[in-house]
Amino acid sequence: MRDTKGTLIYILKRLLLMIFTIIVIFIICFMLVRLLPDSDNPGPGKDPTTFYRIQVAIGRYYEVSPGQYEQLPLLTQLWNFIKNLFVPSTYMNSSGQLVEVSRWGYSWEIDYLQSPIDILFSRMTPTVLINIYSMFLSIPIGLLIGIYMALKKNKWQDHTLSIIVMLFISVPSFVYAFLIQYFLGYQWGWFSPTMADSSMYGWFSGTMINSMVLPVLAMSFGSIAGFARYTRAELTEVLTSDFMLLARTKGLTRAQATVRHAFRNSLVPIFPMILGQIISVLSGSIVIENIFVVNGIGGLFLDSINKRDYDVFQFVAMFYILIGLVGGLVVDISYGLVDPRIRMGGGKGQ
């Protein structure tokens, strides 16, 4: 890191920008989800008074006159939410202790009266495990296939693998998820077709790992294909560079030149991709989780929107936005770490 000060200033700038971005996105998310059409009527069979009392309590409505309720202006709702985020209200519990309400509010539709933080983190484990296993599988296999394809460029091996790779990139994941579930799970019975219950088997038992194989495979196919294609493209380009000729003329074997020079150089754009994969272990796939009955967070985001579970949506959205922004920053910084020629924060004059 030859220009530490410049890099630090760059990071600081990005952090400040990130805070600004978060605030803007926070407001946009808050507004947009509440602008979605939603019934202002409790619906058949529900006591309207109770419905509106809850709406008033959670700060969405106010009682204009007895029996007449109207939505609070969005800005007022936003202000109330922010106020509760920093200065949560308190109440006396049945033991006489003063307790704060959840800063991020509560779930009213998905998991009644649970804090969105608890809901998100209670569903994190299976998602993270599947993603990590998938990552451990897809990165080495993807890179190896990519290298092999580059080395066998334009030969039948390359063509065959390219077709397979394109197939996995083009076909939506749920298609091969269904296929592997049907054949490997139900027809041949090699693996459990749906994920086992963690409350019975724990996270690292044989049964649990067996039941995770299919979702992991389904998650991995696309990534393997992506890594293979990218690695092939980068490595092919590097292998045809002049310095590779120089390396060979210096007396290096093809393998030495490929590993020491070509592969390392081709990693410059691939490494951030891997980093992105690592960061995305926190995000779940709605389709895969539905098919394999995984108690993950894939569906939580969509569920919170569909059910208008506003507080859950707000927290989940902000969590992923934060992860995304931090991830983006880390990836950008990683360019400089991987390739010293890339300097952070360099202006035009530098």
């Binding site: 009392r53 809850i54 049945s94 033991s95």
Partner: peptide, 21 residues
């Protein structure tokens, strides 16, 4: 007793997480 232990006051209303989660 459990019902009351799990009670939360939100706004002006009392709600309980008895029988959930």
């Amino acid at each position: 007793d459990l019902y009351e232990d799990l009670t939360v006051q939100y706004g002006d209303a009392l709600m309980t997480s008895y029988g959930s989660s």
